[in-house]
Write a protein that binds this DNA or RNA. Structure first.
Lengths: 346, 346
DNA sequence: TTCTCCTATGCAATCGTATGCGGTAATTCG
DNA sequence: CGAATTACCGCATACGATTGCATAGGAGAA
């Protein structure tokens, strides 16, 4: 057995190596590479020598050093509730594409819908400063945002109309109006009078808002509210299935159910079909989000479509405008409208 | 209009600030914080003063500094083909959870199944060194791995049995055997003799291997191969739908189709149902992966189940073993077995 | 009392890069 | 032909943390 140790000799190529090979000083190399900077001219012949040396050694700047030096980190951080929820994918994709186009890398964190996770994210960003942050916060308060920004000076873009902070850009859908519209449609066009609701704890402002919109729509239609027809889930399909089982067990079940996201709506469909009931004849179901699987289930899911890809695009656009210095004013709000997509489940 | 400029004065708290407040030197603060390091004792009273100062100022170490100094970066990078493919979510989740448990952050990159994307990822890691890398490579060669490791000394874990490198740990499924098993099952149990295949370009070794396994199974059964029954997709449901349309347009279509991933299988189901045909009576379909939507479609999809969560867990475990120094030998291989899940689509 | 030897702490170099400032040679101008 | 510009480039320092080495003070031994 030879004594050959695993040779993990990382042969880091630094600017100084390039400088040596090119026969110039390290600072000259720096200036050649960051050519954008004027004020100091560089001889054409020198520039060529440096460039050749860079090429020859396969030099890449060490971004950690630049970050330390207080320059741009060329990295943004993104916080989502659950990377496993299809709703977020187009958003993440859009952000990643934009980042890539701007030569940025993306750090991703999950919060699992929990405040601890969100606070942990803030800590992360303080420990490892980034240039910008895109997030989908559920529990963060204005003070939290303030703390983050004060500590890091980072540019922030958030999803959700419940966010109010003077320097945070927000992107949001008109979801409460669309919830109301969907419920009204269920009542007027489909003649339902007993409508169930699968929501989430009201600690989620998005959940609370959609719930309020639901209540308001029912009130407007002069329909009674049955407290037993409100079930609580956790955004997952399993929880939606369970919620529907409870609803189905009622002595006098609803004829239609609205779920605040598609995952729970799809779980609800499972429960209905497993109970041998038909959709929408025995039970109509409306979801929210319009994730791809909504068109794969049978019957296809009637739902309120959000546009996560567009939302992601807008968030990234807003963020990079700030990072490029094209905008530096107060926080802006961007609405990305939703719309009711009628398919077969209601 | 006041002259109040947006005060993005990031008030970075450094170790020196802590030191000043505690009335000690900066190196003492460092030693208190990294207490794990023995050999150097610290006065109890001093330690308390430092800790109080840390608390009071809300100090967090700047990870960029540590990274530069050549210490651990506390960051790993993960490369996947497409974050929008549900197959990867459990994997990403598992990795993120493990990272989080080890106090690591995760950088994520998409490759869109393209070699350029994969090479770009390598560049990224060279520019911004990380401690470890987890990836799902489709095109990278042994030389590429070598280059990455030589340049950065990073620990690498990859998914796929086509990876062979002396210091790279790999995790893989026994997918070719399972493809063969599925085809054989289709022939023996279900009596199919004309089986179509929706694959991907053979530049994907996973695609090539599954195709080879398919051919071998057909050969073993003494069944003829019809070249027109091979369609090429790009892993997306849309491409699967299109492929099935072509297959359906054949003068003598297959009676069963195997798709190399569930997304394409689901797309194929759409095509069949849109054509007014029944599954599995008119057309049987078998997929690969067992993503959640496989149980949401009707009929439910018969498929070969992989276990992405387990794969992610194993990859992360292998990586962190190396990062913790618990293992530093040659590359290991971990097999995560697949299994055929018979549902209703075949 | 003097010499050791801990114990507890500070000093200073270092990681790779950016940049203000100073210095030199070449060029222009009066 | 001497002086004032330019045009180029290097020196040195800073960013925030880790760490080898030096050192102050006090205890114990001879």
């Amino acid at each position: 057995m030879s004594s050959r140790v695993r040779s993990t000799r990382k042969s880091t190529v630094t600017m100084r190596d390039v400088a040596t090979l090119a026969g110039v000083s390290q600072s000259t190399v720096s200036r050649v590479l960051n050519g954008a900077n004027e004020t100091i001219p560089i001889g054409e012949e020198t520039r060529q020598r440096v460039l050749e040396a860079v090429e020859k050694l396969g030099y890449y700047p060490n971004l950690h050093a630049g970050s330390l030096r207080g320059q741009k980190t060329l990295m943004i951080a993104m916080m989502v509730a659950d990377i496993a929820n299809p709703f977020y994918h187009p958003m993440v994709r859009a952000v990643q594409d934009a980042a890539h186009a701007n030569r940025y890398d993306v750090m991703i964190a999950n919060t699992d819908h929990m405040r601890d996770g969100e606070m942990h994210f803030i800590e992360s960003v303080i420990r490892r400063p980034v240039d910008g942050v895109i997030m989908v916060p559920y529990h963060l308060t204005e003070e939290d945002f303030d703390y983050l920004i004060r500590r890091t000076g980072v540019a922030v873009v958030a999803l959700g109309q419940h966010i109010h902070h003077p320097t945070v850009d927000t992107v949001y859908g008109d979801d409460d109006e669309m919830v109301a519209a969907a419920i009204t449609w269920l009542i007027r066009e489909k003649g339902h009078r007993r409508i169930g609701f699968i929501g989430v704890t009201s600690s989620y402002s998005a959940g609370a808002r959609r719930r309020a919109a639901f209540l308001e729509a029912m009130r407007q239609a002069g329909l009674p509210i049955y407290p037993e027809m409100f079930e609580i889930g956790d955004w997952s399909s399993a929880s939606g299935e369970h919620a529907m089982q409870v609803l189905l067990g009622l002595s006098h079940p609803p004829t239609a159910v609205f779920a605040v996201n598609d995952l729970m709506a799809i779980g609800a469909m499972e429960a209905v079909q497993n109970a041998g009931l038909r959709i929408p004849e025995d039970m109509a179901i409306v979801g929210f989000d319009d994730i791809p699987p909504a068109t794969w289930v049978r019957p296809r899911l009637t739902t309120v479509a959000q546009h996560p890809a567009e939302m992601g695009r807008v968030m990234a656009e807003a963020l990079f405008e700030r990072l490029r210095g094209d905008y530096s004013g107060p926080g802006r709000g961007f609405e990305v409208p939703c719309r009711l997509v009628v398919r077969e489940s209601a």
